Computed example of a mutant assay.
Amino acid sequence: MSQGTSQGTSQGTSTEIRRKQLRWRCWHRGTREMDLLVGGFADRHIESLDSAQLERLESLLRAPDPDLYGWIIGRDVPPPEYDTDIMKMMRDFKFTPQSG
């Protein structure tokens, strides 16, 4: 019984670490515009993404910034392998600057 609990905790910790790593990658894209778009998206949605969605987000993050930016703003149509629920969520996301 404790083995199942330990495994569940390990899985939870692994997912938490994965989310933290993905959030960091989203906020460190290379351009301020992409940091704000993708990082803001991660701040808003990453905690609610399941494992399969996290995998699709990881896949999107491997795409070059100019391509990803074009897909997000709707200038370009993403290839089918990138045209997922996560891409739709990114397109629908509206970045709102936080007043400091």
Rank of each mutant, 00 (worst) to 15 (best):
M34W: 06
M90G: 02
S51H: 13
G74P: 04
L61Q: 04
A63C: 11
Q11F: 10
P97I: 04
L22S: 05
R62E: 15
V38Q: 07
K88V: 09
V38M: 05
T9M: 14
L22R: 00
W24Y: 12
L37D: 06
L37A: 10
S48F: 11
E55G: 08
L60N: 06
V38A: 07
D65N: 15
Q3A: 11
R91L: 01
A63G: 03
S59H: 15
S51L: 15
T84C: 00
S6R: 14
W24I: 07
S10V: 10
P66V: 01
G100M: 12
R18C: 10
E58Q: 14
D65W: 00
Q21L: 11
R18Y: 07
D35P: 03
G12I: 11
H45M: 13
L61T: 01
G70C: 05
F95I: 03
L61G: 01
W24M: 06
R56G: 06
T5Y: 11
H45V: 08
M1S: 11
T5G: 02
P79A: 14
V38Y: 04
S51E: 15
L57A: 03
R32L: 13
Q11P: 05
E81R: 09
P80D: 10
R32N: 10
H28D: 08
T84A: 03
W27F: 09
G40W: 01
I72N: 04
M34A: 14
I86F: 01
P64A: 10
I17K: 12
S14P: 03
F41H: 02
T31K: 07
A42S: 07
E58A: 10
M90Q: 05
F93W: 05
R18F: 03
C26H: 05
I72F: 01
S59I: 10
E81S: 09
L68H: 00
G30W: 02
W24P: 00
G100Q: 13
K94D: 08
T13Y: 10
R23W: 06
Y82I: 02
E47R: 15
K88S: 08
H45F: 15
L36M: 14
I72R: 02
